[in-house]
């Protein structure tokens, strides 16, 4: 089926993801122990030379993403760093999130069907991310720089099938809903 909007959807192989929450000083100290910076507030994505990316997802929230090969080492460093911080904590959440890359000139048209965020480049420039709603789920959107141009979508893995279906339908392709789910509950559940 021809797509309505010219986009490419790629499911990114599993990334090492850590989430840190706490007060600013604690976050900075914990990250510093792992030789990572605490970006200033405003959805800035700080990408390190080794590819590890630190996103300031909120005043008290940081998301760290790296290649899976770095998970163990990065995890140990972060654990050590945050163990010494009484007012901040870190957790491994690689299994909790899945990541899609939506690229192409129609990417904004597709995402705008589910995200109320201002997706213009002026509001969300490359190298920035923001938490937002996407078709009723909570996601982080990160603008991918040109030439690919598009968005990285970080969403809880439990919604993977739902988001896949929406991305397919919103781009004008057919539904990608997984067979065998969303069946009707047994008759006893029907209202009497």
């Amino acid at each position: 089926m021809t797509q309505r909007y010219a986009v490419t959807v790629v499911t990114v192989p599993m990334l090492a993801i850590f989430e840190a929450r706490g007060r600013e000083a604690g976050l900075a100290a914990g990250l510093a122990a792992a030789c990572l910076p605490l970006p200033a507030p405003g959805g800035i994505l700080a990408v390190q030379p080794d590819g590890c990316a630190v996103l300031r997802a909120g005043p008290r929230r940081v998301v760290i993403m790296a290649d899976m090969t770095m998970e163990a080492e990065l995890g140990s460093a972060l654990a050590r760093g945050f163990a010494a911080c009484p007012d901040a904590d870190v957790a491994l959440v690689s299994d909790m999130f899945c990541v899609f890359d939506l690229t192409g000139p129609g990417a904004e048209d597709v995402l705008a069907q589910g995200a109320p965020l201002d997706l213009s480049e002026a509001a969300l420039p490359a190298g920035h991310g923001s938490g937002t709603e996407l078709w009723g789920t909570t996601v982080i959107l990160i603008r991918i720089a040109r030439p690919e141009a598009g968005f990285r979508i970080v969403v809880e893995r439990s919604f993977k099938g739902f988001i896949e279906d929406w991305l397919a339908v919103a781009s004008g392709s057919g539904s990608a809903r997984r067979p065998g789910v969303m069946t009707a509950p047994p008759p006893s559940w029907q209202p009497s």
């Binding site: 929450r21 604690g26 007012d87 904590d89 959440v93 299994d95 909790m96």
Partner: peptide, 8 residues
């Protein structure tokens, strides 16, 4: 510090 980890 509170971190939701349900799906992890």
């Amino acid at each position: 510090s509170l971190i939701p980890v349900t799906s992890q």
